[in-house]
C-alpha cells in the first residue's frame, strides 16, 4: 500500500517545528506502524536526509516508550493498543496519516516525535512507593490480601507510564497516571499506612510539574493502551477526601 505521511519534525527544543510530508511507498500491511517508519527512515538515510527520531524499545506494548499521536489519537486508532502493536492492516491504501508527538506543557519536545516525560518519574518520586527497605519484611503470606483487592491493585498497576493519558487529555492532566499508582498501592494492606501522605504529595507534585487539572473528560481512559479505568480517579479522590478530617484538625507544619 502507498500512504502519505505528515510527520512532525523539530530539530530541538528551541526549534519551532513543522509538519513535513512524506510518501511511504510499497508498505506491507503485515508491518507494524513503527516498522513502516523504519522503512521510511531507511529510504531517508539512503537519500542523505535525516531520519525521523521517535521513542520505542520493547515493541511489544509493555515498556511504554512509544508515544505518537496518529491522526489525532494517542497511540492511533486501535483501542487498547500501543503504537508498536498497531499494524498497517488497520489503514487503507492511499490514507493520509498525521503523526505528532505527545503535547502537554509537562512534556516538552526534545526532537521530532520524542518528548521529555521525566515529569512522570518525578510524580512517582513524590510518593508513588511503599517505604520499605530491602530486608526485614514479614513472610509473603503473613499479611493476607483478599483476592479481590489483589485484582483491583493489579488492574491499576498495569499502567505502563507511556503518558498517553496526558497527551489525550484536553487539560494535559496526569490524573489517570497518578490515580493508577494511588489505587494500586491503596488497595493493598501494605500500602495503607502511607496512603494519606502519598495522595497528598503526589497530587501536589502534579501541579508543580505543570500538569493540568482533571475535569472528567475521560479522554485518558479512551486513550489508555492498558484500558485503565477512570474509576481509579474516583478512588484517588476518595483517598484525598479521607485525608481532610485529619488535615482540618492538624496544625500547620
Amino acid at each position: 500500500m502507498n500512504l502519505t505521511l505528515h510527520v512532525w519534525r523539530q530539530k530541538g527544543p528551541e526549534d519551532r517545528g513543522r509538519l513535513e510530508r512524506y510518501a511511504a511507498r510499497n508498505i506491507d500491511p503485515e508491518l507494524s506502524f513503527l516498522e513502516m517508519l523504519d522503512q521510511l527512515n531507511g529510504e531517508l538515510i539512503r537519500e542523505g536526509r535525516e531520519p525521523i527520531v521517535f521513542d520505542h524499545d520493547c515493541r511489544e506494548g509493555i515498556c511504554g516508550a512509544c508515544s505518537q499521536v496518529i491522526n489525532g489519537e494517542a497511540h492511533g486508532p486501535q483501542a487498547e493498543t500501543t503504537v508498536c502493536q498497531l499494524y498497517m492492516r488497520q489503514f487503507q491504501d492511499g490514507d493520509e496519516i498525521y503523526v505528532e508527538p505527545w503535547r502537554a506543557r509537562a512534556f516538552p519536545v526534545i526532537k521530532d516525535l520524542v518528548v521529555d516525560r521525566s515529569a512522570l518519574d518525578r510524580l512517582i518520586e513524590a510518593g508513588g512507593y511503599i517505604s520499605v527497605g530491602t530486608g526485614g519484611v514479614p513472610d509473603a503470606n503473613a499479611i493476607l490480601v483478599p483476592g479481590e483487592a489483589a485484582e483491583t491493585a493489579m488492574d491499576a498497576a498495569e499502567c505502563i507510564g507511556c503518558g498517553a493519558c496526558v497527551a489525550a487529555c484536553p487539560n494535559g492532566s496526569a490524573m489517570l497516571f497518578v490515580a493508577a499508582k494511588i489505587a494500586h498501592l491503596a488497595s493493598l494492606p501494605q500500602g495503607r499506612p502511607e496512603a494519606s501522605r502519598r495522595v497528598c504529595s503526589m497530587t501536589d507534585a502534579m501541579g508543580r510539574e505543570g500538569f493540568g487539572n482533571c475535569s472528567n473528560h475521560y479522554e485518558c481512559e479512551a486513550a489508555c493502551p492498558k484500558g485503565i479505568s477512570v474509576k481509579f480517579i474516583a478512588q484517588l479522590n476518595r483517598e484525598y477526601l479521607k485525608t481532610l478530617p485529619k488535615a482540618a484538625t492538624s496544625k500547620a507544619p
Binding site: Y129, I130, V132, T134, G135, V137, P138, A140, I143, L144, V145, P146, G147, A149, A150, A153, M154, A157, H184, L185, S187, L188, Q190, G191
Partner: peptide, 11 residues
C-alpha cells in the same frame, strides 16, 4: 520483599 513493596501477585 516484593510483596512488602506492593507487587500485586495473584492471590
Amino acid at each position: 520483599q516484593c510483596v512488602a513493596q506492593g507487587v500485586p501477585f495473584a492471590r
